[in-house]
Computed example of a mutant assay.
Amino acid sequence: MHAKQMAEEFPAVDIDSDALAAARLLAEHGLQGLVVTKGPGCPHAVLPAASVVAFLVPRYIQDDPSLAGVLSESAADRIAEKLAGRTVRELLPDHPPELPVVQSDDTVVEVAATMARLRCPLVAVLESGELIGVITAPRLLEHALR
């Protein structure tokens, strides 16, 4: 089986799109991440849901989680406001890691190796340099365990 056969349609967002809308897309569809594009069909990065969560939680709380208990519920309710007026670009690291991408004719093992090496829950599938779909870790396991 090749990557093209495992690839499925998957939401992608442009790098300059609204960060709050991207976060809602992640939440509403229970996604582990989103492909971030720079122009139609041109993948640039993967935005893991965990990175959005990290953006929302103040650094001092990440450094000392025991401080989270001192925040009031009203502060927690306002945490999403941090995304207002931001773009997806601002959620990405300054130097994004290697783009998790495979070619349409890559095998299950090649896809698994890329996903494992980059520790990414999804990979973009390219054909002739254009995004044709995504393979998620659950989808890969579904095919690998048959």
Rank of each mutant, 00 (worst) to 15 (best):
Y60F: 12
I79V: 14
D63C: 06
G41F: 02
T37M: 03
C120H: 02
K4S: 09
D64S: 02
E8K: 15
Q5P: 00
A75T: 08
E130W: 08
A50G: 04
L91M: 04
V123F: 03
A54I: 06
P11A: 11
R117S: 07
I79D: 00
C42N: 14
V88C: 01
P121M: 05
M115Q: 06
P93E: 01
E127D: 13
R146I: 01
S72R: 14
R119F: 02
G39P: 02
C42K: 15
R117G: 09
V35H: 08
E28H: 07
S74K: 14
P138T: 13
M6T: 09
G85I: 10
T136D: 05
V52W: 05
E98S: 11
A75D: 09
A21H: 12
G33Y: 08
L122K: 13
A49L: 02
G129I: 06
D63S: 01
M1Q: 11
C42M: 08
D16K: 15
T37H: 03
D16F: 13
S104L: 03
G39L: 05
V35I: 15
E90V: 05
V13C: 05
S104Y: 14
I79M: 11
I135P: 05
C42L: 08
Q103T: 12
T37W: 03
A19K: 12
K38M: 11
K4R: 15
S104A: 15
P93I: 07
L20W: 03
A144M: 15
L67H: 05
G129S: 05
V101Y: 00
P48Q: 03
F55H: 04
P121W: 12
R78Y: 00
L71Q: 09
I15A: 01
Q5R: 14
A49V: 08
L34T: 13
V108L: 09
P96W: 04
Q32P: 05
A54F: 00
A113R: 14
E28W: 05
E28D: 11
K82Q: 05
V109H: 03
A84R: 15
A54E: 06
A50Q: 14
L126E: 08
A76E: 06
L141P: 08
P58A: 10
L67A: 06
G133H: 07
A54Q: 13
A137K: 10
P100D: 03
V70D: 02
A50S: 15
M115E: 08
K4F: 12
A7G: 01
L118K: 01
A19V: 10
R78D: 02
V123M: 00
G133Q: 07
L141W: 12
T114W: 01
V102E: 00
P43H: 10
L99R: 12
L131F: 10
L145E: 04
D16R: 15
